[in-house]
Design a protein around this nucleic acid. Structure first.
Lengths: 158, 158
DNA sequence: TATTGTTATACTCTATAACTATA
DNA sequence: TATAGTTATAGAGTATAACAATA
């Protein structure tokens, strides 16, 4: 007999969310192996490409990473010359981090890879269904991860 | 300035899945603390309540748990008299596991708790939207976690 | 005294595989 | 020899907090 999950679990949306989140993470980790980087590194490069957050604290806060954890991730990116750290002359406690040309090249590669993973993961769904799913997940994320929310967060504007 | 995630990340459905799966897990773990059990224990009790899978191997396979990990979880359930293990007389290598009356009572309590968590997590969505979301996630889960799939899995029937 | 980045520590999970008792 | 359950071990990942430099 083929192992099957109890109906009761599959009927739970949060159960499916947990399982799919885990699957998505696992697939991504596997696919990223070929680059020698983690999805975490990719997220950091994306923040740097935006240009507005350059200090380590700002990067960590933007992504919700622990600052101690970020140090090691940046060390790995720096070792491969994908980012540069230099002291902020106006506040010598700070490090200003920026992408190198190699970092920008790697970011383009990771964007392509990430798009492929996403497309594969969502392959059972039509374009319209994908848009619907994204909209619903976004509404949940606004509620459960304030970092996803709109500029004027509801309840904070009053 | 309020920390915000890059648009590029929020635009990714798999990114939102990963984040929301993590949030859902975190919320559930927190809520389950009052019971002294994990969602893992709950899932085991659900499998046992179905009645068709009674050996430890069958339970582990149904949920996708490692058999070594399951031992510890069952130890904890047994310590609290929520399940019973006894040798299978027809194959003395096996343990037959079953719910005790206390276990059934606890399962009812966990079902209530779980329904409350789910309702709270999905609170931004209408009933219709929740149904749509569940349907889309289920289609993805069929693809990415075969245990969720229908009895006759596509591609395996031929 | 508070903050930035760094380092060290410890704790949780998980994955692996060795071990026993039965078949 | 293979299987069911158990136990032990090591590894990754994460969280915590101590620390040095600077404000």
């Amino acid at each position: 007999m083929r192992p099957r999950l109890p109906e009761e679990l599959v009927a739970s949306t949060t159960f499916l969310l947990k399982r799919l989140g885990f699957s998505a993470k696992e697939q991504a980790m596997k696919a990223y192996e070929q680059t020698g980087l983690h999805p975490y590194h990719h997220a950091i490069l994306i923040v740097l490409a935006e240009g507005s957050r350059e200090t380590q604290g700002a990067i960590a806060d933007a992504l919700g990473y622990d600052r101690g954890q970020l140090v090691g991730l940046l060390d790995e990116l720096e070792e491969r010359d994908l980012v540069e750290r230099r002291r902020d002359p106006s506040d010598r406690r700070r490090h200003l981090v920026r992408l190198t040309p190699d970092g920008e090249k790697m970011l383009r590669r990771l964007r392509t890879l990430s798009a492929e993973i996403e497309d594969g993961f969502l392959s059972p769904l039509s374009d319209k269904e994908r848009a619907t799913l994204h909209g619903l997940l976004f509404r949940l994320a606004e509620e459960h991860d304030p970092r996803c929310g709109p500029i004027g967060a509801p309840g904070l504007t009053v």
